[in-house]
Design a protein around this nucleic acid. Sequence first.
DNA 1: ACTTGACTCTCCCCTTGGGGCAGCATTTAT
DNA 2: ATAAATGCTGCCCCAAGGGGAGAGTCAAGT
Lengths: 268, 268
Amino acid sequence: MKYGIGEFSRITSLSIKSLRLYHEKEILIPSEVDQFTGYRYYNERNIELARTIKILKEYDFSLAEIKEIINEFSDESEILEQLIEKKKDIEKKIANYKNISLSIDLIIKLEKENKMKPENEFEVEEKEIETMLVAGYRMKGKYSDVGKGFGLLAKNFGREINGKAMSLYYDAEYKENDADIETCFPVRKGKDTEEISVRELKGGKCISLIHKGPYEQIGESYKKIFGYINEKSYKTLIPSREVYIKGPGMIFKGNPKNYITEIQIFIQ
Amino acid sequence: MKYGIGEFSRITSLSIKSLRLYHEKEILIPSEVDQFTGYRYYNERNIELARTIKILKEYDFSLAEIKEIINEFSDESEILEQLIEKKKDIEKKIANYKNISLSIDLIIKLEKENKMKPENEFEVEEKEIETMLVAGYRMKGKYSDVGKGFGLLAKNFGREINGKAMSLYYDAEYKENDADIETCFPVRKGKDTEEISVRELKGGKCISLIHKGPYEQIGESYKKIFGYINEKSYKTLIPSREVYIKGPGMIFKGNPKNYITEIQIFIQ
DNA sequence: ACTTGACTCTCCCCTTGGGGCAGCATTTAT
DNA sequence: ATAAATGCTGCCCCAAGGGGAGAGTCAAGT
């Protein structure tokens, strides 16, 4: 029994194009090729081989690998090594895709939270903040350096991040150049590394104000919030916090005019 | 400040080749191109865009998708839809790879079992078989039809298969053409479908003989095993079993001379 | 001013696993 | 005998670049 390429294609569910390619690459050679017309004819043994090739393709082997395998081996027990290797490859891909999936999840989650409660209020507010687990990287420098801190945190704790980026300011007064800052992410879990400390960040009562717009103009909001605090004669605690509700994103830098930062000054 | 392509490549960790491609595809257009020399020069804004592109690439977006996104949007909140879609894609890939991984695992496992205990004995043996969960497809036909049954089972229960393929023979005597056969796989778990029944297959005491070689010659082994049974005056039960310790594989058909089949005839 | 070495340019071919089409030859069924 | 279906080769195309040839350009040292 012999089959023309069309029939063979239907039998094996391999496209005619693929069959011609496999012939050209000497992976699946028709049992007979008409010397004059070039017509390809396939037989039963070709069907078996085609099945093997299809399965190896499903298992993500490349045509080059498949060619090697079918030329050298004829039984599963002989290709255990290759199967184990391939499985490792696949596990790596799975791990990689899982990371991507988690990263995307985080972005979606944070953005959805923003959509849920569009912060329309610009008034000073008193509120209670809960204790949370954070990963923090403490540094001395300027505000503009915090990006590096967040980059470091994201690289090390990317998959455990659980909320919005924050900065903690440990100076009692405003410092331009040598500020004592800790960049933080809320995390689900994690261990200290050399540079990063993971710990509970105590909550408490705080005075909060939403600042909308570029960070460079945040001074005005600080003025407003301290005005309120002085009026009420509250005693402040350090560190104070800035929560980046909407800042430069994971993907886009975004438009600074739309940045939203929450200032939180904790009181006794 | 402007950067040559080499420096920009170092800054962004994108290869020069990629940068030229992105320019050609109008994804990342240098801030300045020398009209006479064709030299590309990049600026700070290009760095931001490059970062965005890199991240989208990591998230598995194609260049075409990236082009669309960066042309139309400038904030994460605007591409939530695309992110959700991409996440679905990635979940599909993960699911697919997991299936492959499980299939390969199964093959490796079964082959390793064969290596562990090379069945060297060809003598009739009495042994105890444990109860196991099986998925079975019952049919009437010839032995040569069982392949289809196994194909069906593998398709539906592939990821739950937990041992070697078996056939159960429900006829008391030998039948050539219209035999009542059930093809089975041991499975971890599973639910009945219209054609396939999942259930406990009771174990018990059986007389076993390993048959090595093509199935066509299994008659001799049956003769031997029934000789033994008659000699001992055992009462046999139905169904009897054939366990395909080594038969046509998942990948290769293999050489029938090396096939190993265990005949199990249960006794009271 | 010149040379040298490092950069950069365009162009072309290669990769994987085929898809699609043109133009022609052959086979099969009516 | 003729038409419809099938098959052939050859060419161009996709994504996302990699590699290299051959030529032009830039900056620094002499």
